[in-house]
C-alpha cells in the first residue's frame, strides 16, 4: 500500500469532499475530525456581489489540507479540459480529479472522453486523477495516456451502495499492483471504506456519506478510524477465506465427556 500520489505522500488514505454540508462551520468540523490527506474542491460561477467563492476559499486555506480540484459536472472533453485549466490557476495545483460524465442517471464516467481528456491534460503537465470504472482495458488506456493514479467507482456517485463489484475491484488491484488506486464514489458507511483498504486500495474518496450523515463531524471521525483499520488490516495480511469450518480451539486434550 502506498500513500504516494505523483510523488507526494498523503498523511491519510482518506480523501474528503467538501460539498453538501449543512453549513461552512459543519464542513470545518468534519474536516478537522476526518483529518483527510486531501479535500476535493470545485469551481462554479462567482457573483461579484456575493463572492461566495472567496469565503469558501478562505475557509479551505485555514483548514490547511491540500486540495484536489475536480471537473465535476463536465460532460465533454473540452469542458473538462477548460475546467482543469481554470482550476490549476485558481487553486495553484496541477492535480486534477478528472470527471467526464457520460450518463445522467448513474453519473457513470464517459470512459472514451475520459481517456482523451486525460491524455491532453497529462501532456500539458497536469497530474490527473481519473474518475473511472473498474474496467481493466480502460485502466490500461488511462495509464498509457499518462495517468499515474486510477480512481474507480465503488458505486454510482452519492448512492451509498458501497463496493458493487468487489471481484472487479480486486482484479484491478491484482492487475496493477504498483499503481496507486483510490475508490471514488458510492461509499456509504465506514465499513465500505475499511473494505476498500482491506482489498489493498491506497485510499478512498468520500463526500456524501459524511456530508449527509445526521452528524457529519462524528461520521467524519468514524471514517478516519475506518481507513486506519482497513490499512492496518491490509498491512497485517488477512487470512484466506475457506468454504468449510475449521475449529479455532484445539481438539487435542479435550475431555471425553460424551
Amino acid at each position: 500500500m502506498s500513500r504516494h500520489f505523483y510523488g507526494t505522500e498523503l498523511t491519510s488514505p482518506l480523501m474528503l469532499g467538501t460539498a453538501q454540508y449543512p453549513s461552512p462551520e459543519i464542513l470545518g468540523d468534519a474536516v478537522r475530525a476526518a483529518q483527510p490527506g486531501v479535500v476535493t474542491v470545485s469551481l462554479r460561477r462567482e457573483s461579484a456581489g456575493e463572492r461566495a467563492g472567496q469565503a469558501f476559499w478562505s475557509l479551505i486555506k485555514d483548514l490547511g489540507v491540500p486540495v484536489l480540484p475536480n471537473t465535476a459536472g463536465c460532460h465533454t472533453v473540452k469542458e473538462a479540459v477548460t475546467t482543469a485549466h481554470m482550476a490549476r490557476e485558481v487553486f495553484g495545483t496541477d492535480w486534477v480529479k478528472l470527471e467526464v460524465i457520460g450518463e445522467l442517471d448513474t453519473l457513470q464516467p464517459d470512459v472514451f472522453g475520459l481517456v482523451e481528456a486525460a491524455r491532453i491534460l497529462s501532456d500539458d503537465g497536469f497530474k490527473v486523477f481519473p474518475y473511472t470504472t473498474e474496467d481493466l482495458v480502460v485502466a490500461e488506456r488511462l495509464l498509457a495516456a499518462g495517468c499515474e493514479v486510477l480512481m474507480p467507482w465503488g458505486a454510482p456517485i452519492g448512492s451509498g451502495k458501497g463496493l458493487n463489484n468487489i471481484f472487479g475491484l480486486r482484479a484491478l488491484r491484482a492487475h496493477f499492483p504498483d499503481v496507486p488506486l483510490v475508490v471514488d464514489a458510492g461509499i456509504g458507511v465506514p465499513s465500505h471504506a475499511t473494505q476498500a483498504l482491506e482489498l489493498g486500495y491506497d485510499a478512498v474518496l468520500i463526500n456524501t456519506a459524511v456530508a449527509k450523515a445526521g452528524d457529519p463531524a462524528i461520521m467524519a471521525e468514524a471514517f478516519r478510524l475506518a481507513v486506519q483499520a482497513g490499512a492496518l488490516a491490509r498491512k497485517a495480511d488477512p487470512m484466506e477465506e475457506r468454504d468449510m469450518a475449521v475449529p479455532s480451539t484445539p481438539l487435542i486434550g479435550k475431555a471425553m465427556l460424551a
Binding site: A19, S42, N70, H85, M86, F91
Partner: peptide
C-alpha cells in the same frame, strides 16, 4: 480559458460569452 496574464489583451466583442468562476465546494 483565458489566463490571468492574458486578460489585459483579451478584447471583448458584442455578444461574447464570459465565464467567471471561483472556488466552490466539490466532491
Amino acid at each position: 480559458f483565458v489566463p490571468v496574464a492574458q486578460r489585459i489583451q483579451a478584447p471583448l466583442h458584442e455578444g461574447v460569452k464570459v465565464e467567471i468562476v471561483a472556488p466552490m465546494q466539490g466532491g
